[in-house]
Simulated scan of single mutants.
Amino acid sequence: MTVEPATRPIAPPAASRPDARPPAGARLRRWLSPRNASAVYLFALLFVVFAVWEPDTFLTLQTWRLLLDSQAVTGLVAVGLIVSLSAGVIDLAIGSEAGIGGILVAWFLARQGLPIPLAILLSLLAGAAVGVVLTLLIVRARVPSMIGTLAISSILIAMIDWISGSQQILDLGPSFQKIGTDELFGVTYPVYVLAAVSLIVWYFLDRTAVGRRIYATGGNVEAARLAGVRTSRMILLATVTCGVIVAMAGVLASSQLATGDPTITQSYLLPAFAAAFLGSTQFRGGRFNVAGTLMAVAVLAVGVKGLQLGGAPIWLPDLFDGVALIAAIGFAQYQKAPTARTAAIRRTLRLRGRERRPDLETATNETAPN
């Protein structure tokens, strides 16, 4: 009786394993490709253009400090928005949510005489309450998110006008103003708030199981529900988080202005959406993400500031943001669609080929070496 020696299965090469990571050089080339990081190259292009066009004003430290300070609030609104968008909720009320946060903190301070910490806390709770109401409309009443948030936006605008009497609320006190204007190492506090919130949101969405469930809910709510994800809770968590962050942005805006301004409600809507959708095309291949959104905020801010320094008309920033939003959504769809369509077409062709040529497949199987 002959015993054959035992043989060990030969493992496939590392490059052919499905779980093998590509080499570092390949990953770097992919990360730096224009398709994946186009905003970085656009930022560099805008920087060079405006540096040549307006070198005396664009390249000054004061201009960049003002640019950084002014975009901290917009960046917060955009970061809050991507949490909502990641769960599939298109929140058209973010401008009004920022406005209600800003006007409430002013009303609590100037009209009610509350201490600053309590006034800020109550304003943030109001933002959370807006998120709860939105969830009830979307999940319980089955109202589409665009319609529900648009209705909530109109209601919040009415509340802002009622609370403020359609007038600015003044006399907020110098201590509250310091929150938005005081500096640490030459950078104002709102910038540090933006950095801290962005880091928390990035970790929450990209490094936790709850964040993955939120992405799954936004990708396909029915599939996520069938997979065991409690989608209602994910939508609630996303909208409440968005409401709190955006209300915080409104509080900082009132602190920077030293007044409660009822007219700021829509000034953050278009830039935040443009930044969120442009950011979704960066670094993560069509997924809303913090790094891409902040990069998009920087690109849009540099573009608008450069045009203003060049003497562009006052209406040009709105035009710039609108064009950027259309381009961002189009590019995001371009990134997502071809891969899915190509894969579907290939599957269809393979299936049809097997149906039409069963004799060829049989002959191939019979003649294949064993």
Rank of each mutant, 00 (worst) to 15 (best):
A87H: 02
L66T: 13
T74F: 04
T74K: 08
R29N: 13
S86C: 01
S70N: 14
A78N: 11
P55C: 02
A37C: 14
L85I: 01
V83I: 14
R29V: 13
V73G: 08
R65I: 07
L46H: 02
Q71V: 15
L32W: 00
P55N: 06
F50Y: 09
L76I: 02
W64Y: 01
L85G: 12
L76V: 10
T63E: 00
S84L: 10
L59G: 10
G80Q: 02
L76F: 07
L45R: 01
G88A: 03
L28K: 00
R30K: 09
V89I: 09
E54N: 14
E97A: 13
G80F: 08
A93W: 04
S70W: 01
S84M: 11
S84H: 08
W53Y: 12
L28T: 08
W31I: 10
A87E: 05
A93L: 09
L59F: 04
V89M: 12
D69K: 03
S33T: 08
A72V: 10
L61F: 06
G95V: 06
S84K: 05
V40F: 07
A78G: 10
L42D: 04
S84V: 00
A93N: 10
R35P: 08
S70F: 04
V40C: 13
S96P: 01
E97F: 01
S84I: 03
L42K: 00
L67T: 05
E97K: 05
F58S: 04
A39L: 15
A26T: 12
G75L: 13
L76Q: 03
A87T: 05
R29D: 15
E54K: 11
P34G: 08
E97Q: 12
D91L: 14
W53H: 02
A51F: 06
I82Y: 03
L67C: 04
Q71E: 15
V77S: 02
T57H: 07
R27L: 13
F47H: 07
F50C: 04
P34E: 03
Y41I: 12
F58Q: 06
F50M: 11
L76E: 03
L66W: 07
V48F: 00
A87V: 00
V77W: 01
V73H: 02
S33H: 14
I90V: 15
S96Q: 10
V52P: 00
V79M: 00
I90A: 14
T74V: 14
R29A: 15
T57C: 09
W64C: 02
L32G: 06
T57K: 00
P55F: 01
R35E: 14
W31Y: 05
F50S: 06
L59Y: 07
V49C: 06
Q62S: 10
V79A: 06
L68N: 02
F50A: 05
L66A: 11
I90T: 09
Q62R: 03
A78Y: 01
T60P: 12
Y41P: 13
L66G: 12
A26L: 15
V40L: 15
E97V: 15
G95K: 08
